[in-house]
Design a protein around this nucleic acid. Structure first.
Length: 437
DNA sequence: TCTGGGGTCCTAGGACCC
DNA sequence: TCTGGGGTCCTAGGACCC
């Protein structure tokens, strides 16, 4: 039984969840007006559907379907590579719009946000539903994409609401009506309840969110751990998850992985993939001024089994040059010849603030300082000329495969209009210079 | 949804300490 | 080198999310 204390926030609260409809595909349609009304699919680079427009969904296309199959169900589908740079710009605009209504906004993911509307009716001289509608209209008018919104007493309930009617829906779930919605919500569709827990709960005859919400607390305390106990409170309209307004400024871990097709047993090639993973993870760590204390290296075989090694660092760092030997050590430990690998991965873990790193007498601080300067320069060059301006030599055997990275076509006029204020080189699709060192 | 990429938190159990 | 009770730190692994 969990004796952990669960914080109940003062209630009732009015929590809003906003979920963009088919976000990636909608962004593409917004900047390519000629695609409106057509089945649009993103995910070309992966070979599976990342997002499908509602026109494509209507034809039976769902997430994760192989593109080869898409062509059979929906031969006229427009298939595009995912363009995260552009989607991020839409995302930022969307969050900015929500903030016009309340400062209490949580950027939950690229296409979702929570907002705390509690007490705002007075300001807006109208009910919460009106605030939701205005928000929805503003996003649609200014960005050309539709969103669905749920408003209820907690985050879990608001999430259930935004999913209830899509696309372009608004679902208000006041306390009196919660049971009506939860009775139709399968238990595995509740935010925070995955397939494992759902299967467990179904053994007790709990098939819907309503069944779960109605269970008494002794059952919950006896059989389930803290996260599910919290979900149970939230389903009953008692808010325990606060809307987190601070933006993410740090990380517990940073990982970079790469899947390659076809699988490979070529040692230099696989090592080069890993080395590139390491460089990319380090770039991100340095951007947040973090240093790793542990390095995890793993390879995924063709049969989807993993083997990995964890190395402890004697001195925390985010410099690839200081980590290559360890990477190599881990790699040699797990790599087997004549084995086909499909994916490599690196995790920088035990991250601590760079400023708090303590050096010992045995560390070559002069050398470390020198490397810091080198990487400062590398980071500046990369910012100016593109992500892969400077690479380590070990990473080179992947160059042939990554020729298309950073490539940009013409920037659509609609995108220029929308984002003309933001003159980041890559965002505007200016040529990216690749320098091999 | 035979499987891409990037994260988080929680729990149990062992090591070690008084 | 048996016997109690209680605490902390760390790690592996599970489960979940978009």
């Amino acid at each position: 039984m969990s004796s952990e204390f669960i914080t109940l926030h003062s209630w009732p609260r009015a929590i809003l969840h906003l979920d963009a409809d088919a976000f990636f595909a909608s962004c593409e349609q917004a900047i390519h007006p000629e695609l409106k009304g057509k089945p649009v699919i993103t995910g070309k680079e992966r070979g599976i559907v990342a997002a499908a427009s509602y026109e494509a969904k209507a034809r039976g296309v769902t997430r994760g379907v192989r593109l080869s199959d898409v062509k059979k169900i929906c031969p006229d589908a427009v298939i595009l590579p995912s363009d995260y740079e552009t989607y991020s710009l839409f995302s930022l605009r969307m969050f900015a719009i929500i903030r016009r209504f309340t400062p209490d906004v949580e950027e939950y993911s690229i296409d979702e946000a929570f907002a705390d509307l509690t007490g705002l009716r007075r300001n807006f001289h109208g009910p919460y539903s009106m605030i939701a509608r205005k928000m929805q209209e503003t996003v649609e008018k200014e960005l050309g994409i539709t969103v669905s919104i749920g408003v209820s007493l907690s985050k879990v309930l608001a999430k259930a609401g935004s999913k209830h009617k899509k696309p372009s829906g608004i679902t208000m779930m006041p306390g009196r009506e919660i049971h009506h919605y939860l009775g139709k919500l399968p238990i595995e569709s509740v935010w925070g309840i995955g397939p494992n827990t759902a299967a467990f709960l179904r053994k007790f005859g709990i098939n819907t969110a309503f069944d779960f919400a109605r269970k008494d607390e002794t059952f919950v305390a006896k059989h389930l751990s803290k996260p599910y106990h919290e979900v149970w409170h939230e389903l009953n309209g008692r808010s325990v998850y606060p809307v987190m307004t601070e933006s993410k400024s740090s990380y517990q871990s940073i990982s970079k992985t790469r899947t390659f097709t076809p699988p490979s047993k070529d040692e230099p090639f696989v090592l080069a993939q890993l080395s590139k993973n390491l460089e990319n993870a380090c770039i991100k760590a340095r951007r947040y001024n973090l240093a790793a204390t542990r390095l995890i290296v793993f390879l995924r075989k063709q049969d989807f089994t993993d083997s990995g090694a964890e190395l402890k660092l004697t001195c925390p760092t985010a410099h690839p040059s200081a980590l290559f030997n360890l990477l190599r050590e881990g790699f040699d430990h797990i790599f087997r010849s004549n084995t086909l690998y499909r994916q490599t991965g690196v995790v920088l873990a035990g991250l601590i603030a760079e400023a708090s790193v303590q050096y010992t007498l045995f560390d070559d601080t002069a050398q470390i300082e020198k490397m810091s300067k080198v990487y400062d320069a590398v980071d500046i060059l990369s910012e100016k000329f593109g992500k892969y301006t400077v690479r380590h030599a070990v990473s080179l055997p992947t160059k042939i495969q990554s020729q298309h990275e950073g490539e940009r076509g013409d920037v659509p006029q609609r995108k220029q209009e929308l984002f003309k204020g933001e003159n980041n080189r890559q965002r505007l699709g200016l040529p990216v210079l690749n320098v091999m060192v």
